[in-house]
Amino acid sequence: MEISPDQWIIYEWHGLRLNATIVFTWFVMAILVLGSWSITARLSEGETVSRWQVLLEVIVSGIRDQIADIGAGDPLRYLPFIGTLFLFIATSNILTVLPWYEPPTGSLSTTAALAICVLIAVPLFSITKRGLLAYLRSYAEPTFMMLPFNIIGELSRTLALAVRLYGNIMSGSIIVGILISIAPFFFPIIMQLLGLLTGLVQAYIFAVLAMVYIASASKTHRHGSKEAEAAGPSDEIQNPGE
């Protein structure tokens, strides 16, 4: 039994292996891009709007409002990054309803890649907003003594981000696989449904946490500490899902 789709090699050419993770990622990307393109190519700016456009507007404005609620200034600045995180993870998790499909988020490589993106995006957003010095100074707050702990916190939360998503999705697939061998027909379906729910919740948690990290790093110290407090409960939200 394969734990990670990384080990599922679909094509190999001169030592370069094209594994299932990348192929299914492309599949998800294709669905997202083609779906958006087919709808946005016929956008209406008048009163009569197609239902697909309404769907997209609801999703986009929902993400935008969520970002605005977390409060780091102009939500449109973070929308591409956070929105893409959410849409990618959510789509790749929902597509598990397809029988031949393996979610790319069930691979630690994918979740690590996303976590690394967040790790890089947090200082990038912070520096473009506050400047390099202010960002670096935030590591030495409230005192210089906290510098190592801040750095460790930065890294550990990235690790937690990656492992949390990977563990949830991977476990979902594995549980279904085990249940099929123990109790076929009925139980796996329920677990599959629960897996869909978990997948959506994880997508939401991943995106919101990324935004919270960005917001807390992008704010001044005073607001940042408040934001860190606000991030605390958010961290705990994930526990029921795990």
Binding site: I22, M29, L43, Q53, V60, P80, T84, A113
Partner: peptide
């Protein structure tokens, strides 16, 4: 794979920015 996924993700951000966020928010 991690490197490929990072690249994939950045490409996806660019594509969605081009085909989804900009047109929808503009509309």
């Amino acid at each position: 794979t991690i490197a490929a996924q990072i690249a994939n993700f950045l490409v996806l951000i660019w594509l969605l920015q081009r085909f989804l966020y900009t047109p929808i928010t503009r509309a």
